[in-house]
């Protein structure tokens, strides 16, 4: 597998990372997401990392980069589903992902994106 699929749902892009990514795959995802935010005029990006057993400094940097790039492109990024052991390790590693919005589940993450875009979690403006 040489690409992580990106799904489009209205004005949002959804990514579920289900493989242990090598570094080039992570860089490709970062580039693909940035390109698709612009192409689809996306307003939000939801990244589900609930399958990831490890987030090291490289993946952490990629997540931070995606959040920063999407902000510059007028979109919000929410990272959802981080495992507790991953959160503990990430902070001890020295990465607290400043500027990255997080939610515990895909549902909560979607609510967060809809609220920041529509003003309400159910999508009505």
């Amino acid at each position: 597998m040489d690409r992580i699929p990106i799904l489009r749902m209205n004005e949002f892009l959804l990514v579920t990372i289900q493989v242990d990514m090598h570094d080039r795959l992570a860089m490709t995802l970062q580039d693909d997401l940035t390109e698709q935010i612009v192409r689809h005029r996306a307003r939000g990006v939801l990244i589900d990392i609930s399958s990831l057993e490890v987030v090291d400094s490289f993946i952490g940097r990629m997540i931070g980069n995606i959040a920063a790039m999407s902000r510059v492109l007028d979109a919000e990024t929410v990272v959802v589903g981080m495992r507790p052991a991953v959160a503990i390790t990430l902070v001890e590693l020295g990465l607290s992902l400043p500027g990255v919005r997080t939610a515990l589940s895909v549902d909560k993450g979607m609510d967060l994106l809809r609220t920041s875009f529509h003003g309400t979690p159910n999508g009505a403006s």
Partner: peptide, 27 residues
């Protein structure tokens, strides 16, 4: 990463300790 995980599991490490040594190994 996968090899270190397999070793840490066989040696009976807790999930948090597995995650820590696998992350250190990755770096």
């Amino acid at each position: 990463r996968q090899l270190v995980r397999a070793w840490a599991i066989r040696l009976g490490f807790s999930l948090v300790d597995q995650t820590k040594i696998v992350t250190a190994a990755s770096e």
